Simulated scan of single mutants.
Amino acid sequence: MNGEQTKNNEAKELIIFLDCGDTIIDEGTEVRDEHGTVIEGKVIPGADEMVRLLAERGYRLAIVADGLAQSFKNLLSVNGLYDYFEVLIYSEQLKVEKPSPRMFRAAMGAMELGEQDKKRIIMVGNNLSRDVRGANQEGITSVHLNWTSRYPKTSLDPVERPDYIIEEPLALVELAERLNEQLASNKRIKA
């Protein structure tokens, strides 16, 4: 492995929380069983590559999603993405949905992260009132994936304004690299 590959594979400062529906999986392709559990669905173009690239480059990934645990296990497994996530937090387990702080705190706890780590976390999602609001209220950097027309793309509420907006999943890779470099730079300056 050359030096650049080694650098890319080292553990990163930045930690990435991802929503699933319309962030990784196209909700419009979901097929449900008679109990409402999603049994299959297709990834958004480039989302599978995005997840793999981020994991291969050493980013710690967590799913923070509203819905049934089995639905997400099915979707992520059938698309070969399940094992890329260190932690999977679902609203079904916690009996609350985003923007509840419990969703974000559960992911942080499962990853052994404390309050001081919030500046290292980004939450990526498609929903301003859940993903962005929840992250902003917790002091976590918010990234809006402006991919679908199923949800509003703008909000008049300041707490629903994302820190960053990306138009397609693969744009997250470049943004993550840039944010990680800023965190690493700040860490070197303080050292």
Score class of each variant (00 low, 15 high):
Ala106Arg: 03
Ile39Arg: 04
Val96Asp: 03
Ser100Tyr: 08
Lys98Ile: 03
Asp26Met: 11
Arg32Glu: 09
Leu75Ala: 05
Arg52Trp: 07
Lys98Thr: 03
Asp26Gly: 12
Pro45Thr: 03
Arg105Cys: 04
Glu27Leu: 14
Leu81His: 01
Val31Thr: 14
Gly28Tyr: 12
Thr37Asn: 10
Leu81Ser: 00
Gly36Ile: 09
Phe85Cys: 08
Leu68Lys: 14
His35Ile: 01
Asp48Asn: 10
Lys95His: 14
Glu92Leu: 12
Ala62Met: 09
Leu75Val: 07
His35Pro: 00
Leu76Gly: 03
Lys95Asn: 14
Gly36Thr: 07
Ile39Lys: 05
Leu75Phe: 09
Ala65Cys: 13
Asn74Ala: 12
Gly58Cys: 05
Glu49Trp: 13
Gly67Phe: 07
Lys73Pro: 00
Glu30Asn: 13
Met103Glu: 03
Ala107Arg: 01
Met50Ala: 03
Val78His: 09
Glu40Ile: 02
Glu49Asp: 15
Ala69Asn: 13
Gly28Val: 06
Val31Glu: 14
Lys42Trp: 07
Glu97Trp: 14
Ala106Glu: 09
Gly109Ser: 12
Glu112Ile: 07
Leu94Glu: 08
Arg102Val: 10
Gln70Trp: 11
Tyr59Val: 00
Asp48Gly: 13
Ile24Tyr: 01
Ile63Pro: 02
Val87Asp: 12
Arg105Lys: 11
Arg105Ala: 09
Lys42Pro: 02
Ser71Ala: 11
Gly28Arg: 13
Val64Glu: 00
Ala107Lys: 02
Ala107Met: 06
Glu86Leu: 14
Glu34Tyr: 07
Leu61Ala: 05
Ala107Cys: 06
